[in-house]
């Protein structure tokens, strides 16, 4: 019988340098498993010190209290063809070699353009004065900090934790109560998906970029 297991990327290697990691880091969100416990969201805020009002990952529920009630946790999907990266006027958003869509808060002008481009509404903006949002954008970093000296106080303050550099999984995925939220090396994640799909049959509840936007949406 297929047992699902999550493999931690770079465990063996450890250490901050990611150069050797060829494949892309991915999320997989299993709508057949997410129980809307909110663990991911709370853990994220705690680990990354996210200010109130900002959710780098949030859990959406449809048909609450009725047959077909379904939950899905929505972080930044770190899209391969990332619309946010395409529209950002100042290239504050960019792909890291390992596929993480990173943000540079030094150059971000806080225009909010990425928010409208993003399919998942991942970019977040500090709620501000009567004159609308203030400050720069914040979004899920895949717990990989930002373009600063890894583990520096500055990085922690601006971007939160850098677990990837520590060889750890993103916080949200590692606390996930039901392993609905799986993160890691695209290959490994694909294996998890495959195993679950095999156990369940067609479809399988994998949920991400492609599934989320059936053609024409």
């Amino acid at each position: 019988m297929a047992e699902t297991k999550v493999t931690v990327p770079f465990r063996q290697a450890g250490g901050p340098e990611l150069k050797y990691a060829p494949s892309r880091l991915k999320f997989y969100i299993d709508v057949k498993r997410c129980i809307e416990c909110g663990g991911c969201e709370v853990a994220c805020k705690n680990e990354n010190n996210v200010p109130a009002g900002i959710a780098r990952i949030r859990v959406v529920t449809v048909n609450e209290g009725e047959q077909g009630e379904t939950n899905v946790a929505v972080p930044c999907m770190h899209c391969s063809k990332a619309p946010c990266v395409a529209v950002c006027p100042v290239d504050a958003l960019f792909h890291r070699p390992d596929g993480i869509v990173a943000l540079n808060k030094e150059t971000c002008i806080g225009c909010g353009y990425c928010l409208y481009a993003c399919p998942f509404g991942a970019p977040q903006f500090p709620r501000g004065a009567p004159f609308g949002a203030r400050g720069v954008m914040d979004k899920c970093t895949y717990c990989a900090g930002g373009p600063e000296v890894p583990f520096s106080e500055r990085e922690r303050r601006m971007y939160g934790a850098n677990r990837i550099a520590e060889g750890k999984l993103p916080m949200c995925a590692s606390v996930c109560a039901t392993k609905a939220l799986v993160a890691g090396d695209a290959e490994e994640v694909a294996n998890v998906v495959r195993m679950r799909m095999a156990a369940r049959g067609v479809g399988g509840g994998a949920w991400g970029w492609e599934a989320a936007y059936g053609k024409g949406y």
């Binding site: 529209v87 006027p89 806080g110 720069v136």
Partner: peptide, 25 residues
């Protein structure tokens, strides 16, 4: 300019705005 979270950076757009496929640029 003032809808920006960082207007000062906005004013210096010729320096900052490097992504020429973005309509904002």
């Amino acid at each position: 300019s003032f809808h920006l979270g960082k207007p000062e950076r906005g004013f210096a757009f010729p320096l900052f705005f490097t992504n020429y496929q973005s309509w904002l640029t």
